[in-house]
Design a binder for these strands. Structure first.
Length: 413
DNA sequence: TCTGGGGTCCTAGGACCC
DNA sequence: TCTGGGGTCCTAGGACCC
């Protein structure tokens, strides 16, 4: 038996919007985004028009994350839409993490705006500590968080979901029946838009129903996923704490502002997507063996094709060649809305072994990539681009965020 | 100007080998 | 000869999360 520890889940309220607001306040620009119906949303003209984050007043008007901005505006006609500043959010997320590490080294990063904290001292008043963390964040960083407290990650996370914003909640084992079971089954972690209707068909509508359902029937219908959510309904979660997460794959995709109908145009987009994948792969000091490409057509039909190559590589050229090959096999000539390139089956670069199949000039390619990476790091993504992008209207390095477009940020965020 | 982008994990089927 | 079964690898697709 492992010793019982206390787990906190920190969840930034309306993360992107809160960070946006705090950033502009620090720049001396007053705003009241959080008090009004406001969303962070993409560019509709570029066909990126969805809600990324919403204020509480927007939520009250029926605006939902992931909704198209069109729908959101219908639900809430006086909605204010703000373009995202991912560079700000990434920095804000990093400094929050650093701050949380001053309380415990055991910080498990779940996403850009969620962290788990693990504590082992039994004699501490953790509710008091949670208030201190929450209030210090509010005071020093200028935004609010919810904190959930329990004995494992699942329960801590469910606890932080309760009433928002700026709240502390506990969800200990003995509170499951009163606090968790009355909730709708779709409120449980890992029950999404597909599973909830299946459960409803089995007569399961609350988390309590799930906990007390016919287990065999559940497993027959949902297999291993059924076992997982059944355990969750009872607050059972054996997942471990990890400070470092191994990356399993690196992907880059984009919805294109127009429908792609020509192979040569598609190739250019593929190359541009691959540039970013290659850069990130090398930055992580990894090599990949599987390359996959995904295509979403005009009518939202999505298909993917992947291929395992005979050796591990981090060469942009190799990734591009494989991705183009896969594209040719996959594409049925129908107009393309979105394309995605992904590499997986990763190993650390230091584990590389000489491979018989590898192309002879592999080493030179790697050296070239490294040199280009360095120049781009120093002078910006666009300092070196393929000649074919000049006047093509397509960005030579797609994905990520173009940090050089933004002024240097000296804020504490 | 309807519907983003980045991940993880699981399953099922076919190929191939013994 | 009329049809095994176990194991592994690979691929496509679907579900979930933020």
């Amino acid at each position: 038996m492992k010793p019982e520890s206390t787990v906190m889940h920190i969840d930034v309220n309306s993360a992107f919007l809160s960070w946006h607001t705090a950033y502009y306040k620090q720049m001396g620009i007053e705003n009241d985004f959080l008090e009004k119906p406001t969303v962070i949303g993409g560019n509709e003209k570029k066909r990126h028009g969805i809600v990324l984050a919403k204020s509480i007043p927007a939520k009250k008007s029926g605006v939902k994350t992931g909704q198209s901005l069109m729908e959101a505006k219908i639900a809430c006609p006086n909605l204010e839409i703000i373009y995202p500043r991912y560079d700000v959010y990434v920095k804000a997320s990093k400094s929050l993490r650093e701050f949380l590490k001053t309380y415990t080294p055991d910080v498990d990063v779940f996403s850009i705006d969620e962290c788990f904290l693990n504590f082992t001292d039994k004699n501490k008043n953790y509710e008091k500590l949670a208030y201190e963390i929450k209030n210090t964040i509010k005071k020093n960083f200028g935004y609010t968080v919810n904190v959930g407290i329990s004995t494992n990650k699942l329960l801590a996370k469910q606890a932080s979901e309760f009433e928002k914003p700026d709240k502390i909640h506990t969800l200990y084992k003995e509170e499951i029946k009163t606090k968790l079971w009355p909730l709708d089954v779709s409120e449980l972690f890992m029950i999404g838009r597909r599973t909830a209707p299946k459960l409803k068909k089995l007569g399961i509508s609350t988390i309590g129903d799930l906990a007390n359902c016919d287990y065999n029937l559940l497993i027959a219908s949902l297999k291993s996923h059924g076992k997982l959510i059944y355990d969750y309904a009872w607050g059972i979660d054996n997942s471990i704490f990890r400070e470092e997460h191994d990356i399993k794959g690196i992907g880059n995709g984009s919805t294109i502002s127009f429908d792609v109908e020509e192979r040569q145009v598609a190739y250019k987009i593929i190359m541009s997507l691959c540039e970013n994948v290659g850069i990130r792969l090398r930055k992580e000091n990894k090599l990949c063996k599987v390359v996959s490409i995904g295509i979403k057509s005009k009518d939202f039909k999505y298909s993917i094709k992947q291929k395992k190559i005979n050796y591990y590589t981090s060469s942009t050229e190799e990734i591009i060649e494989t991705a183009k090959y896969l594209f040719d096999v996959l594409w049925d000539q129908s107009p393309i809305r979105h394309m995605n390139v992904r590499v997986s089956d990763l190993i650390d670069r230091k584990n590389k072994q000489i491979n018989f199949f590898e192309k002879e000039n592999a080493l030179e390619k790697e050296k070239l990539d490294e040199a280009i990476d360095k120049i781009r790091e120093k002078y910006g993504s666009y300092s070196i681009i393929k000649a074919s992008y000049l006047d093509s209207g397509i960005e030579p390095v797609m994905g990520g965020y173009p940090s050089e477009e933004y002024p240097d940020m000296k804020s504490i965020l």
